[in-house]
Design a protein around this nucleic acid. Structure first.
Lengths: 219, 219
DNA sequence: AATGAAATTCATCACGTGTTGAAAAAGTTT
DNA sequence: AAACTTTTTCAACACGTGATGAATTTCATT
């Protein structure tokens, strides 16, 4: 392992702290202490605390958006000129995320936990999510519209909203389902979630935005 | 309108502030200022800041839990000895919440926004939600098991988890769907959500935990 | 080895934090 | 009216906050 730069040490520490305590629950000194770095370096490298937060959000968002974009393009191309099957679109939307959460280590889990908080927070939920993820989301919505041509636009948007809520609560991994299920289900077992999330969400979409069209029906 | 007690003024102000900025984003002085009250009164009446937070959470949780309990009992009794239909159970779970959010005024909307945050927060999501809502949730899970007798236990729990996520993102009302839909959908139009949430979630449950049994199938 | 830029340390600023205790005021009971 | 309790006010506490500027060290380039 090549040794980390100070900037990366700060980013990593900030990510972990923000994920656990939220933006306002963490001080610049907390971050510096957690990164084993002088407090002034936080401001030297990033300007201010909020800029650290934005940098944390941006870093992995770029990676994820590329992966998800490619997954969607792959699915669309494979079925072209027919619309892609619903479950493949939903899978392309979720797979990169849940796969990283499962196998990416604590750093990725921290990032997703942070995402889960952000999405449900008035100060950030509207702006940050929009800023980092809306362009990609619009592409997925286009794919969904092609597959569900009879879908009412508002229905489609609310279905996406439900998907977003189910997904981000999963990311938050608060441990609630662990206690609620007496340990049967584990918040951090994202593979188990993925197996169930895709069919659950697809069924929801179909019930409201169906019928689904595609190559299967036309053969 | 009878004039508010100091304690209620503090609770109301705290609720609004916590909903907007989270626990750590609000100081005891912020609350006092927003309540037009001397800062020392916050500690005089509640002991410390965290106790204010807990009091805010508890106040409306009791009201809601009673309403939802009654709604569930009513549905179960009406269909006894048959299991209640899935959609009626889900409606009993969500109706009191979304109805209050729609018609209860800003104070209730603040409370739900706070709930939406809490549920996705590691520090509170596990403990506070469990503390205030688990007994009721277990009753709903029992009703679901009766209606979906073939359901795998883990499947059922994850389906509930998806419901919880979709619901609490709705409560958070971050305005994201407003911008994502170019104003077609409004975060605060909880009636529109309710219309769609119940069938969406029911379809999800059925696809994974079905088949549903009940009086209709047996006639 | 000398030079200049980048990175790091340290002390410090003005202000906000949660909380407390003593004094004053308001309200209640005898 | 007197005695008592509850509530409110005000000042203060020790400490943490985000951020800055000057001095120092580290480093790469000549």
């Amino acid at each position: 392992m090549t040794e980390k730069s100070t900037k990366d040490k700060i980013l990593d520490a900030a990510e972990a702290q923000f994920a656990r305590h939220g933006f306002d629950g963490v001080s610049a000194r907390d971050i510096a202490r957690s990164a084993s770095v002088d407090p002034a370096l936080v401001n030297y490298h990033f300007g201010n605390k909020r800029a650290v937060f934005d940098a944390v959000m941006l870093r992995r968002a770029e990676v994820l958006n590329n992966e998800r974009q490619q997954a969607l393009d792959f699915v669309l191309r494979r079925h072209h000129p027919n619309p892609a099957p619903l479950d493949e679109i939903i899978d392309a939307f979720t797979h990169a995320l849940l796969n990283r959460a499962q196998t990416g280590g604590q750093e990725w889990r921290d990032y997703f936990a942070l995402l889960g908080q952000i999405n449900n927070t008035p100060e950030f939920g509207g702006s940050i999510m929009t800023q980092f993820f809306d362009p990609l989301v619009h592409r997925f919505l286009d794919a969904l519209r092609a597959t569900l041509p009879e879908a009412d636009e508002a229905d489609l948007m609310w279905c996406y909203h439900f998907l977003s809520g189910a997904l981000t609560l999963t990311f938050a991994a608060t441990g609630r389902i662990d206690s609620l299920s007496n340990g049967l289900c584990k918040s951090t077992d994202f593979d188990e979630v993925h197996k169930r999330l895709v069919p659950f969400i697809c069924a929801g979409f179909r019930s409201m935005c169906g019928p689904e069209v595609g190559p299967i029906q036309e053969s």
